[in-house]
Amino acid sequence: MTTEQLTDPLTSTNAVLRVPPAAPEAAAAHFAASLAFHTDVSDVAAALGGAADPGFLLVDTRSTESWDQGHIPGAVHLPTADIPRLAEVLLHRSVPVVVHCWGPGCNGATRAAHALAGLGYQVKEMLGGFEYWIREGFGYETAAGPARRDPDALTAPLSSGACGC
């Protein structure tokens, strides 16, 4: 394949390279920005489990019915619809907020992050949401008490506990 074929979307047969990769400088800026907006389940779990004060507040933005099905210990429940009314009561602008919703198929956390940022809060979104919290084998709370499931071998390491990312 020639260089012209890589950059010409009409003649390229390789879908991965149909649009060429960004220049390294542009890629570095993009990924640095992404890390400013997102964190992941494993990093949140490590921070919550490793210190009395992780430096942020975890906020579950799901409905009350969803919260009652199960939630992450220590999270604050603030449904997205209640942010305009309750954010100032439950949150402090000096403490960064990490929001989550159900999982990657849900953009509720993105909507919540947008609302909180618009009110002046520092905010990150936890990628994977509650679904991946459970799938990675971290504990959660239900009305019946604490619960935990075995890690899903397709989403989390079964032996070492660290993915090596």
Rank of each mutant, 00 (worst) to 15 (best):
N107V: 08
W133T: 00
C106G: 09
W102N: 13
G105A: 01
I134N: 03
E25R: 06
R148E: 09
L119Q: 11
C165Q: 03
W67I: 10
L6F: 13
L57V: 14
E125V: 07
R93M: 09
P21Q: 11
G129F: 01
L58Y: 04
V99P: 01
W133V: 07
F31A: 11
D53I: 15
Y140P: 02
E131R: 06
A81Y: 15
P9H: 06
G103P: 04
A47N: 10
Y140N: 06
T142Y: 14
L158D: 08
T3C: 09
A143C: 11
E4Y: 09
F31I: 07
R149L: 11
A47C: 15
P24K: 07
A75N: 00
W67V: 12
G105K: 05
A52M: 15
S34A: 11
S160V: 02
L91T: 03
V98M: 01
V44S: 03
S94K: 08
G118E: 02
T3F: 09
L35F: 10
L116R: 14
P157F: 00
S63H: 07
A109L: 07
I72Y: 02
S94I: 14
I72S: 00
T11D: 12
E131I: 06
D8W: 09
C101N: 06
L119V: 13
D40V: 00
A75H: 12
H30W: 12
L78F: 11
L91V: 01
R93H: 10
T61M: 06
T3W: 11
A32R: 10
T80Q: 04
L91Y: 02
Q5M: 14
T110H: 06
T7H: 04
P24H: 00
G145H: 08
G164D: 07
G164S: 03
H77K: 12
A113W: 02
P84Q: 10
A46C: 14
A162N: 04
M126G: 04
P151D: 09
L58I: 06
P79I: 01
G145M: 03
T64P: 12
M126F: 06
A23Q: 13
G137A: 05
C163L: 13
H38L: 14
E131Y: 11
H30E: 15
A143S: 10
V98T: 03
D53Q: 10
V123D: 00
T13Y: 15
R149E: 12
P84F: 10
V99Y: 00
R149G: 07
L116G: 04
R85L: 14
D60Q: 01
G118S: 08
G105T: 00
I72D: 00
V123Q: 00
A33S: 09
A162R: 04
A29Y: 12
S160F: 02
A45E: 00
C163G: 14
E25H: 15
R149Y: 14
A22H: 06
